[in-house]
């Protein structure tokens, strides 16, 4: 058995050429924060390609159209980016709450997707924003797919995350619940993108993590908010809908009883963040009475 060899291509052109030229197994390493955890097997053979220094894979472009984020962009860079904080605050919030300083400085958005953890913090935001992935196949060619169609075992490298303009909505929020405030793997996380004007919701998209093998849209909760005025009755319907979404997602699981209740508190925090109210606003206090 031959030992693993490593490569650190300087740019995307070199990477593409390498992918199509190398016959044996290829593995990728980005920030390594999920891959190098003790006890997880390291690739024993083939070529290990370092993505963390490739020019053209770490960038954020949030101009007037959509947002594009290079696959090897660090979570810290996303958390600190002014354009993302303006255009999609939920993504900045999810990035800021992901791991610790040390992890955010190395972890990448592409890795957060490719690691395919059910509780990945960035992914619910990307699902709610209808993100598309610009991938590179083993033949070195580009292809684009919806984030929901991505599977880590298909051999596609995530070169960039594309957030099309029509997927973004004016308001967004992200909240998570974990065993501690920082450096915690989410027990539940929720992202919301919404239109909200004159006290009324328009289009609403909500996705949650840690409610199944991969983050999923909460369609019942979306329907409970869409087109409705922000008032007690709407919020009560919304909380009932969130519980119904949990019941539909994890029927019979041990955590169902806990999560169907816990999601109420998270849901109200989510609304508060999206519409710019304090989570302690009387409106929310009244609803949980």
């Amino acid at each position: 058995m031959s030992e693993t060899s490593v490569a650190a291509p300087a740019d995307l052109a070199e990477l593409r050429a390498m992918l199509s030229a190398v016959a044996g197994p290829i593995n990728f390493i980005g920030g390594g924060t999920d891959m190098l955890i003790a006890g997880r097997p390291m690739p024993a053979v083939g070529l290990l390609i370092d993505l963390s220094r490739i020019a053209g894979m770490a960038f954020i472009c949030a101009d007037d159209g959509g947002i594009r984020v290079g696959g090897a962009t660090t979570v810290a860079a996303i958390a600190a980016h002014r354009g993302i904080a303006t255009r999609l605050p939920a993504l900045a919030e999810a990035a800021a709450q992901c791991g610790s300083v040390q992890i955010r400085n190395r972890a990448t958005i592409g890795g957060n997707i490719a690691n395919a953890a059910p509780a990945a913090d960035l992914v619910p935001v990307l699902v709610a924003a209808k993100a598309r992935l610009g991938c590179i196949g083993r033949d070195g060619a580009s292809r684009e797919l919806a984030i929901c169609d991505y599977a880590p075992d298909r051999g596609f490298l995530i070169a960039e995350v594309i957030l099309p303009r029509d997927g973004l909505l004016p308001r967004s929020a992200f909240v998570k619940l974990g065993p501690r405030l920082d450096l915690s793997i989410s027990r539940l996380n929720i992202a919301l993108l919404a239109e909200f004007q004159d006290g009324r919701f328009g289009d609403v998209r909500i996705a949650a993590g840690a409610l199944g093998p991969r983050p999923l849209r909460l369609r019942i909760a979306e329907a409970a908010l869409a087109g409705r005025k922000l008032e007690h009755a709407t919020l009560r319907d919304f909380l009932a809908a969130l519980a119904a979404d949990v019941d539909a997602a994890i029927p019979g699981r041990n955590s169902q009883a806990y999560k169907r209740r816990a999601i109420s508190g998270l849901g109200l925090d989510l609304i508060a963040q999206a519409v710019g109210l304090s989570p302690r606003d009387q409106l929310f206090e009244d609803v949980v009475q």
Binding site: V6, I29, G31, G32, T33, L36, I37, A38, G39, D50, A76, G99, S100, V101, Q102, I103, N105, R106, L183
Partner: peptide, 23 residues
Amino acid sequence: CEGECGACTVLLDGKPINSCLML
């Protein structure tokens, strides 16, 4: 060796990282 404890923290180009999670 899993990024939880931070005892391996070093600065990489001036920024803290877990040196156990980097090759």
